[in-house]
Simulated scan of single mutants.
Amino acid sequence: MSRLPRLAAVATATLALTVLVSVPTSASEARWGSSRPSVGGEPTVSDPRVVAHFDFAQGQTAENIVLEPDGSAIVSFSNARQVARVDKQGTVTILATLPPVANPNTPVIGVAATTGVTRAHDGTIYVVYATGTSETGVWRIGPDGSGPEQIAELPTNGFPNAIDIDEECGTLYVADSVLGTVWSVPQDGGPRTAWATGTELQPLPAPDGLVGANGLKVHNGAVWVSNTDRQTLLRIPIRHDKTAGAIETRATGLSWIDDFDFTGRGDTVLAALIMDNQVALVRPDGTHKVVLTEQDGLDNPTAVAVGHKKVYVTSAAFFNPVNPDPNLLLARLSKGHK
């Protein structure tokens, strides 16, 4: 097990160096001190604290997160190929380990990795597995802990990343960072469909581009997607016939954007900026400000989840060569009037 994190770290460090040259830092970001005041009644993030530290040497690079009704977090550990539960006391329980792959050939990173994770109301967990082999796809863990079981294959030459569920129409949506595609998969499993494609979802052209569509959430009748290379937050309406509408760019200049979540029913977003070690609040008008930083405990933040009047942030420490600290951070969320 100890070899796998080192291999993944080398591969992802190469990715970091490449993207670092190609993606400039946004000039529109404003840094805030520890008070982080509310502006115009917008949500406020305060009192950040790390509630769980994970074992980098064992591959516990926290990649994605979804919440349970009691406030526990379901977290994917990408390099360990695992899905874990972190309870409110910070205790970690491994729920499932995805099967090893003899010769993984995953684009960008070269190793097998668990990436996105989501949860149905009945407790079923869906996780994305990227391997570069036939095991690439969506896997299911039953409410009783059964599985993991592969329920859909995704292209071996892609890099499936984030996943979210629309239970009203029984559909899982998956963002592919290499193929620039949002895939749809029946919740019960079955063939994939290229639900949305377009330049907005693709990485930048070679040699600069590597990671396009990255984070994904279903929200207010649309699928929202981040594009890391293009520093954008996108909205794709779900039409009445469940097909994809035209892709809308809702925010730009979000350097290093990874996954994200909404602060409530409106369209205000909290987004992880992985290489900047920041979380940004993105307003509905597309402007944004930084609300959490490395000083709060972030170490290459990968994803955000909002619930129980709290903000949960996973950090993977992928690109920290000295004292990496993958962790789970919690902060208080005051929603203001939006």
Rank of each mutant, 00 (worst) to 15 (best):
R119T: 07
R239G: 10
F77T: 00
R85G: 11
T61E: 06
V83T: 08
T287M: 09
P326V: 02
A27E: 14
Q187Y: 06
R250P: 03
N79S: 14
D229Y: 06
N157M: 06
G198L: 00
D299T: 01
V39N: 14
S334G: 12
V75A: 09
F262N: 09
T124D: 08
N161L: 05
A73R: 05
A84Q: 03
W32G: 14
A16E: 03
M275H: 12
S78V: 01
G266C: 01
Q295W: 06
D55M: 00
A27K: 07
V39S: 15
V279Q: 03
Q150K: 08
A8S: 11
R265P: 15
K88Q: 10
S334I: 03
K289T: 14
R283C: 08
I274A: 09
G286Y: 05
V127A: 07
P100G: 14
P43I: 02
Y173A: 08
V306D: 14
T18R: 04
G33E: 12
A303S: 12
V269T: 15
I238V: 08
L281P: 13
S38C: 04
V174Y: 03
T181D: 14
T97S: 06
K335R: 15
A206Q: 13
V10K: 11
D122N: 12
N105G: 08
W256V: 01
G198N: 06
V282F: 08
Q278R: 11
K338M: 09
D164N: 05
Q231E: 15
T199I: 01
V138S: 09
